Amino acid sequence: MSKFLIVVDNFKVGGITTSLINFSNFLTLNGYEVEIICFESEERPQGLASSVKIKGLNRGQEIWYLNKNNMKHKKHMNLFKILILGLIKKIFNKGELWSKLCLKQNKTNPYDCAIAYRQGRTCYQYVKYAVNATCKVAFVHGELKNLNSIMKWYFLWDSFDKIACVSQAVKQQLIERFSRYQKKYVVMPNLFDVNELYKLANKKNIAPYKSFTFISVNRMEYDKGADRIIEIYDYIKKNCNVSFNWLIIGSGTLYNEIKSQIKEKDLVLLGEKRNPFPYIKNSDCFVSMSRSEAFGMAIKEAQLLGVPAIVGAYPAAREIIVDGITGKIVANDSKSIAEEMIEFLENSQVIERYKNNLLKEEYNPKVIIDKFVEECIGEKNYE
């Protein structure tokens, strides 16, 4: 049985942690042994398979990481010691010197594959210096234009065998910018547990909406298009007489500003919901206003629940939506999104066709993950 190590800095709630849980679970379901090293917590995140082992840093590695979130729970680290070590780290934390001094590779019990699951210097350096593995993989979860710090850590890819991109679009962006790693790039999209999605979607009974219902699930931030909400809503109300509801789930820096502008009852900000799936499943159409996505997890989750999407175009959108068949990709601006929402409101046949086509789509995460494993360690586990 091949043995995998996955390295992350934390289990904070968010898309990467959700993706990590699904990725780990499917590895175990496919017969692989999985361990996770988490720098800041050994507490098992909800939904992670019990067969996945979780470990923290040893004492020497804690000194290397030296993070206040990690240290405050360690009784053996008093404040004076933390201050002294912090000063030493500040002096030596130039380039990779601190990692070379603190991280020692365990030469026994090598892993078949070690994965730095969160992109960036910290997880990459840990896998490079502290882990003994036949194959080392660095994940990239973001679009290149949003990786503002990439020039500080991309060179660490020299020490990795594979660079896993969450979409073909991200892979292509990296090929164009960092072509010398072209042979290392592989695609490993976010995975989804359909049974778990439906289980969560059925946990809460939502009363049927009287009108056609749109739903959006995103952070209330500029890059996710939250600033467009009022403009899109006003355009629809001005140009369409069909009644509708628009539910928006999420929180962020623009939340209060947008909430203060809402005067109608059919535009509803629900705030952050730990389980948004009952609301998604009970809606007619998912709307993505995001200016940028490396993949588009919320869109795919909606599709797997049978809800078609209207999406402002971004590079990876066509890896999720078959345009005009399972949903609609439009120009990424407020007017184009609003006009397509009107099209859905005024033409019920369109939405029904998309829903029927989604029912015919097959989704097999086992094939996806086994292909990834074969690309990384050469082990074939599928027909």
Score class of each variant (00 low, 15 high):
Y129S: 11
P315G: 00
L85Q: 15
M289R: 11
N245C: 06
E346S: 12
I262K: 09
Y117W: 07
I150T: 00
S2N: 12
Q61F: 07
G86V: 02
K100E: 15
E35M: 09
V242M: 05
E272V: 07
L269M: 03
S2C: 06
L66F: 13
K204A: 05
C102G: 03
G31T: 11
V307G: 05
C240I: 01
R121Q: 14
E343V: 12
N275A: 07
A201C: 03
I368D: 02
I150Q: 00
L358C: 03
R291V: 06
Y222I: 15
L359G: 14
S2F: 14
D227F: 06
Y124M: 15
I115V: 13
A331S: 12
V307L: 02
I320Y: 00
I16D: 15
A331K: 14
L247S: 10
I84M: 13
E383Y: 14
F4H: 13
L267H: 04
A313I: 12
I6W: 04
L101N: 08
K3W: 04
G14T: 08
E196G: 02
A116H: 00
G95L: 08
E346G: 11
F80R: 14
Y185S: 05
E374S: 12
G225R: 00
A226D: 04
I229V: 02
M220H: 03
F192R: 08
N190T: 08
I236D: 12
S99I: 03
Q125G: 10
W246S: 06
I232F: 00
Y314I: 00
F160D: 07
V242N: 15
A226S: 11
T253M: 12
F212C: 03
A164Q: 00
N67Q: 11
N146W: 10
L304N: 00
V166M: 04
E379L: 06
G15V: 05
L359C: 08
W246K: 11
V330Q: 04
R318W: 05
N148M: 10
Q125S: 11
I329L: 00
G14E: 06
E35T: 12
Y124I: 13
Q173G: 10
K263N: 06
I36F: 02
F160L: 04
K210R: 14
F244K: 08
N22W: 04
A226W: 00
A164L: 05
Q303P: 10
P365S: 01
S336G: 02
L103S: 06
F92T: 07
Y279M: 05
E176H: 14
E196I: 10
H73I: 13
N190L: 05
D158Y: 06
K237A: 01
V194E: 11
I262E: 04
G15H: 03
G296S: 06
S290P: 00
D112Y: 03
C123Y: 02
V8P: 00
K265W: 01
D284Y: 02
P45Q: 08
N357Q: 01
L48A: 07
L197A: 05
G47E: 01
K273T: 06
T18C: 06
T17D: 04
P189A: 13
Y354F: 07
E231S: 10
R274Q: 12
F80E: 13
I280Y: 00
K300S: 03
L304H: 01
M77P: 02
T253R: 09
E383I: 09
L20Y: 01
G14Q: 05
I150M: 04
A207W: 01
F286Q: 00
I84H: 08
F80T: 15
A294Y: 08
T17K: 10
N282L: 03
I63P: 09
L254V: 10
